[in-house]
């Protein structure tokens, strides 16, 4: 009894800090547990396995006449493939040296200069730029024009004017043969 009494009376400060520790440890465990439970609730909104597994597509580009473009759907988004004319390629190369918002030379944006493959998604807020069909406005740089807020892309798909911050994105693709491209 005596021992107990002294122990109780003397190190009161010590007792308090031990209790504090237990309280803090309990709260922390609770927070970790709540966090661990919240994660599945949040992560379920990320792309599901089948969405991620969306197949790649193959396309025969030899059918695209020079100066024409086609639009494909890949992962729910449009992909533009343009068979560029000599003038369009020259314009893109000529402008390589210019000061651009998102500097990139044309040769870094194509695997074969004749075929430009880009995502048809404006890097501003995601509209589909015009310029695919014959007769559509192509903007001031002979590429594409986004009507939503007025972004102009050049014949290499680089942003030249308007609010978009970056060049049209290049999807992963490979030439399976001289004529067939696999996207994705």
């Amino acid at each position: 009894m005596a021992a107990l009494k002294t122990k109780k009376a003397a190190p009161a400060a010590d007792q308090k800090s031990r209790r504090d520790f237990i309280v803090v440890a309990t709260y922390s465990m609770g927070a970790v547990g709540a966090g661990a439970f919240a994660w599945p609730l949040i992560d379920q909104m990320n792309p599901a396995a089948d969405t991620l597994a969306l197949a790649s597509i193959e396309v025969d580009v030899s059918k695209i006449a020079e100066g024409q473009s086609i639009t494909l759907k890949w992962r729910g988004k449009p992909v533009f493939i343009r068979h560029r004319t000599k003038t369009e390629i020259d314009e893109a190369l000529r402008d390589d040296a210019l000061n651009m918002r998102d500097p990139q030379v044309d040769s870094d944006r194509v695997q074969k200069p004749e075929y430009l493959v880009v995502l048809g998604v404006c890097t501003h807020l995601g509209c589909v730029p015009l310029g695919q069909k014959v007769g559509e406005v192509r903007g001031e740089y002979d590429g594409w024009f986004c009507p939503c807020h007025g972004s102009h892309y050049d014949s290499s798909g680089r942003i030249r004017k308007g609010p978009a911050p970056t060049n049209l994105e290049i999807p992963p693709y490979a030439f399976l043969s001289d004529e067939v491209i696999k996207i994705g």
């Binding site: 949040i42 909104m45 990320n46 792309p47 599901a48 969405t51 992962r75 729910g76 995601g126």
Partner: peptide, 23 residues
């Protein structure tokens, strides 16, 4: 997507895919 670093991730998370779609 305008937010630096996390932007793209947030947009994909909001969409549940690579574009506005069924999810």
């Amino acid at each position: 997507s305008a937010l630096p670093f996390v932007g793209e991730g947030i947009v994909t998370w909001l969409w549940g895919g690579f574009s506005v779609d069924n999810p």
